[in-house]
Write a protein that binds this DNA or RNA. Structure first.
Lengths: 217, 217
DNA sequence: TCTATACGAGACTGAGCGGTTTCGGATATG
DNA sequence: CATATCCGAAACCGCTCAGTCTCGTATAGA
C-alpha cells in the first residue's frame, strides 16, 4: 500500500511474462492521480465521476480502468501517493521560540495547501467510515504530517526549557489542525492569518504554559 | 424556514379551500423526520435513500413526497426541526467554577448526543457546501447550541472574576466542539470522557488563564 | 514489417435511485 | 351512503454513473 503508483494489482509472480506490443506509459500514472485529487477536492468522493477524472487528465476511461480496478482503488492510490510538497523537514522554520516557529508557518503558500488538504479530507467523509484502508491512507497523507510538524515544534520548545516537560504534546499538536478543520469544514469560513494567529496566541501558547508577553492584537 | 414541520409549501392563500375527504395525518411528520435524521446519521446525505427513510418510518414513499417536494427539502426540514433535547437552559450545571461546569457536561447521555449530532454533521458534508440554506440550518441546530452553552460558562466565569475579561470567548467556546469534531470525524475515534477531560484540563482552562491547581491525571 | 498491446474517444450496459403513478383500503365530511 | 382525500405498498420512469467494449491510431519488440 505504501509503494508508489499501485501497479502490483496484477502480476502475482515477477515478470515471467515478457509480453509483446506497446508498453504501458507509466508517466500518465501521476497525471491521472493528480487529476483525481483535484476532482476529489472540488466534488468529494460521491460527486466525483471517472469521466471527470478522465477529462481532467485528458485520458480515456479505459486507460484509467486498465490501471485501477475501481473508483475506490483509484482514490485510495491517489490519496496514498499525495506528497507533502510543503513541510519537508529541511524547509521548516527554527526560530528559537515556539511562537516564532508557529507564526512562521503562516504563509499564503502554506495556508493554501492546508485548505486544499482539508477540502480533500472533507470530500472523503462517508467513504472514510466504510473503508478503514482509505481512512488510514488519508490520515497518513493529510493529517499525520501536520501533526508531526507541530510535535517537533513542541518537543524543541520542551528541550529548550520554553515549555514544561509534562505538557500533553499529542493533544496540543492536534489543536491547530483540529480547529482549522472545524473552521473550514464545519463553519465554512476561510483559514485566514488572523484566525491562525488568534489560535496561536489565545489557545496554543497559553495551553503550553507560555505567558502572553508579546501580544500583537 | 423556522416554523415547525413545513406544510406551507402549498396553499399560498390562507384556507379559502376547505377541502373534502380524509385529512392528512400530521402525527406522521415528526416520525418521518426522525427516521430521516437516523438514516442521515448512519449513511450520510449521499448514501441515504428515500426508500430507507420510508422503510424506517413504515411509510410509503408517496406519503413522504406528499409532504416534502424533494430529498433536499426533507433533509433541510429534518435538520431544522432537530431539537436540542439535552442542554436546555434550565438543565445546565452551575457549579461555581468553570472547570466544574465543563466537567459536569461530561455525562454518557450528553456524550452520546454529541456524537450523534457530529455524525449527522459529517453526513451533511458535500451538501453543506452547495446549499447555504442547509449549512445555516445545520449550524443553527447542531453547532450553535453547543457554542452558546460554552459561551455562557465562560461569561459566568468572567463575571465571577475567575477568568480575565479580555479573553477571547468566541474562540475558546469553539475549542471543545472543534476538537471533538476533529476526533470523531477526522480521527474516527470515540469521544470518551478521558479525552474530554484532557481537553478541559490541558487546553481550555490554561487557555482561559486558569492555573492547573486541581489536576486529576 | 508484422504482431500484440496501449492510447484517446466515445458508445454501450446494468444497476441504483429520485421522483411519479397506480392500487386496494381506510377515513373524514356531507 | 357518497365523495374526496389520505394511507402503505409497490410498480414504473428517466437519468446518472461505474464499469466494459469498440474503433481508429500509435508504438515497442520480433
Amino acid at each position: 500500500m505504501a509503494q508508489s503508483h499501485s501497479t502490483a494489482q496484477l502480476d502475482p509472480e515477477a515478470g515471467p511474462t515478457p509480453r509483446l506490443g506497446r508498453k504501458r506509459d507509466h508517466t500518465r500514472d501521476p497525471e491521472i492521480l493528480d487529476a483525481a485529487i483535484e476532482v476529489l477536492a472540488e466534488s468529494g468522493f460521491d460527486g466525483m465521476t471517472i469521466d471527470m477524472v478522465a477529462a481532467r487528465a485528458k485520458a480515456g476511461k479505459a486507460t484509467i480502468y486498465r490501471r485501477w480496478p475501481s473508483k475506490a482503488d483509484l482514490v485510495l492510490d491517489a490519496v496514498a501517493c499525495m506528497k507533502a510538497a510543503d513541510l519537508a523537514p529541511e524547509r521548516l522554520p527554527d526560530t528559537g521560540t515556539l511562537r516564532g516557529d508557529l507564526v512562521a508557518m503562516i504563509r499564503p503558500r502554506s495556508i493554501e495547501e492546508g485548505e486544499r488538504k482539508l477540502r480533500i479530507m472533507g470530500g472523503l467523509f462517508g467513504m472514510i467510515s466504510t473503508s478503514p484502508e482509505l481512512a488510514a491512507a488519508a490520515h497518513q497523507a493529510i493529517i499525520e504530517p501536520r501533526l508531526a510538524v507541530n510535535r517537533l515544534f513542541l518537543q524543541r520548545a520542551i528541550d529548550r526549557g520554553e515549555v514544561a516537560a509534562d505538557c500533553d504534546i499529542d493533544l496540543l499538536a492536534r489543536v491547530a489542525s483540529g480547529m482549522s478543520a472545524f473552521r473550514m469544514l464545519v463553519e465554512q469560513q476561510p483559514l485566514d492569518a488572523d484566525y491562525l494567529l488568534s489560535l496561536i496566541d489565545h489557545v496554543i501558547l497559553p495551553a503550553a504554559g507560555i505567558a502572553p508577553e508579546a501580544r500583537t492584537d
